[in-house]
Write a protein that binds this DNA or RNA. Structure first.
Lengths: 104, 104
DNA sequence: GTTGGTAGTCATGTTTTTTTGACTAATTGA
DNA sequence: TCAATTAGTCAAAAAAACATGACTACCAAC
């Protein structure tokens, strides 16, 4: 069964959707941190100065809904939650990298 | 003389700056229309249903400030103004295209 | 049973972005 | 001279995004 992953609102332009999914005050930074490996809620909160629980929680939820991050419960010592790049998220990496090449 | 084109606020992440420069309700659509050739104020207003003078004017100004569009006065019949992709704007096209390949 | 770490939610308030509607100003054509 | 088209600006209101502080709930160690 292929699930229908359409976000609530679809723009006419695909690029516009991607931009929307990555835009916001914290999403690009969270995405960038996720490039280096799984990220976690409290850790992000500490790594993003000026951020707050609400904003980070919202950003994570939206990145998950956009199928950019995948949320996993890790059954380990101090039982925790990890967010990792989805396949789509990984496909975005090259786009992200080429943006980094565009100087400012 | 090389003019200093830095925007007021620089983020630590280059990709984040690009995202910021293209984000907003109307900028992606204006950018996409500019891919097909020079765009004009009143024409954009007609092509973007739901838009308004103020928003389009602001988007154009910011795209110009970000050195994505270049504003030109065209000395022709009904003397008008055109916005065309700058070099940087053209460099962004491939990024934009690869975003379009990421299925929403 | 209290402290500390995990990962949040909720209501509220502030700040930023976007929209609305009125207004300006130069040029063109009749 | 009048009307339309060009390309906007300005102040204010509405909407969306973001921040704050209190609170919840689970688990483990002491």
């Amino acid at each position: 069964m292929t699930t229908n992953n359409l976000p609530q609102e679809e723009a006419s332009c695909p690029a516009e959707n991607i931009l929307k999914q990555l835009s916001g005050k914290w999403k690009p930074q969270i995405f960038r941190l996720a490039l280096d490996g799984p990220v976690r809620f409290n850790s992000l909160l500490r790594q993003l100065p000026g951020s707050n629980k609400q904003s980070v929680a919202t950003a994570l939820k939206e990145l998950e809904e956009a199928d950019i991050l995948v949320k996993t419960v890790v059954q380990e010592k101090p039982l925790h939650i990890e967010y990792t790049l989805s396949e789509k998220g990984q496909a975005m990496v090259s786009v992200f990298r080429s943006m980094e090449g565009l100087l400012g």
